[in-house]
């Protein structure tokens, strides 16, 4: 007898809980058993008893929080089903960042997919999103408004190159989220034929090296520290978005401030941050991708987590799709997405 999914998968104060499986998904507080969708700070936290995730996500967590950030780790390759207390669990690629996975759970004749963060656009640094038909699909809504239609990332890189050609005496300082976006930007820049060294803010070095160890070719990347300031002129430096306005950035003479983010679609956002060159590059699904993905899963019910869930829930209702907002605590608004 099929049992309604909300009877066995529901939000608690620790996070989303799969009761028969006895595990949480991306809990924001320490728990005994957690399955982690991907390595971003608002999904992967330290202090859990046991963590199950893709090998890449575990490697990322160890770099960010240390080898002992969880009591035990169990790595699970993509598409390899296991059973946890009778719940069949497998991981499907989410296309968000390296190692990102959707959690597929089947129990009592029903299947639920918690997608974590995801995108459908191509990304040379991670496996592409794979659609898993299900009864309940749990989706993010970071860009859950119809004004969000991301640009083709490769075109945005050409925008960067045009600006570099026009401003040859200035350094292009690209603000980008340190895990995922940073490495994707480097790879996109390499794929577009740029082979000079790319310089990194100190906070980005360790994760970038990890990407390289895990087989993502990023070319000649060097830390900014100890480099002769002349080296940056006319070049590319990547840093966390917050560093652009910080004292750290004073070492560059009159840099062009660049920000690679889905938010850059909105001019006001770019102006607020004083961004001179906004690049619309996002690791989250835009509005058309959200709608298409939800429809393709043929799920009878959609649960919407963080972001602009009001608009998405409203729109799905006009399409005749049952949807509701799932209030999860501790989820960021992903200002740097």
């Amino acid at each position: 007898m099929a049992q309604s999914v909300e009877r066995w998968l529901y939000p608690t104060e620790h996070g989303l809980f799969c009761e028969p499986g006895g595990f949480y998904i991306d809990p924001h507080r320490p728990v005994d058993r957690a399955i982690i969708t991907h390595g971003h700070g608002d999904h992967a936290r330290s202090g859990h008893g046991a963590v199950l995730a893709t090998p890449e996500t575990i490697a990322i967590m160890k770099v960010r929080y240390g080898e002992t950030c969880a009591g035990a780790f169990q790595s699970l390759a993509l598409r390899e089903p296991i059973t946890m207390n009778g719940v069949e669990v497998s991981l499907a690629p989410a296309g968000h960042i390296l190692g990102s996975a959707q959690i597929v759970m089947t129990w009592a004749g029903r299947r639920a997919v918690v997608s974590g963060d995801y995108k459908r656009a191509s990304d040379p640094t991670c496996e592409a999103f794979e659609l898993v038909p299900c009864d309940v699909f749990v989706t993010e809504a970071t860009f859950g408004l119809p004004v969000f239609r991301h640009e083709v990332a490769a075109n945005e890189v050409h925008k960067l190159f045009r600006s570099m050609a026009a401003e040859q005496s200035r350094t292009h300082l690209i603000g980008a989220y340190g895990l995922g976006k940073c490495q994707r930007m480097i790879r996109l820049i390499r794929d577009a034929g740029y082979d000079k060294p790319i310089y990194l803010h100190g906070a980005m070095v360790a994760l970038t090296h990890l990407y390289q160890q895990l087989g993502i070719a990023l070319g000649d990347v060097r830390p900014v520290a100890h480099e002769d300031p002349k080296a940056f002129v006319g070049g590319i430096v990547l840093c966390p978005p917050s560093a652009i306005g910080d004292r750290w950035s004073r070492r560059f003479n009159d840099p062009v401030s660049v920000f690679a983010s889905g938010w850059m679609r909105i001019r006001g956002r770019a102006r607020q941050r004083g961004v001179e060159l906004p690049l619309v590059v996002s690791d989250h699904a835009d509005w058309p991708e959200l709608i298409a993905t939800i429809q393709e899963t043929s799920a009878g019910e959609i649960w919407v987590t963080h972001g602009r869930e009001d608009a998405l829930v409203y729109h799905l209702s006009t399409l005749g799709i049952t949807a509701r907002a799932l209030k999860l605590v501790g989820r960021d608004d992903d200002e740097d997405a």
């Binding site: 408004l145 119809p146 602009r308 608009a311 409203y314």
Partner: peptide, 27 residues
């Protein structure tokens, strides 16, 4: 081409009518 409720939510978020319409307009 756009539901009035979604238009209003978008307009409130973007904060500028011209930009909202420019972004919502079908490509």
């Amino acid at each position: 081409f756009i539901d009035p409720v979604l238009y209003k939510m978008s307009r409130d978020y973007v904060g500028d009518t011209a930009e909202t319409v420019a972004l919502l307009w079908p490509d």
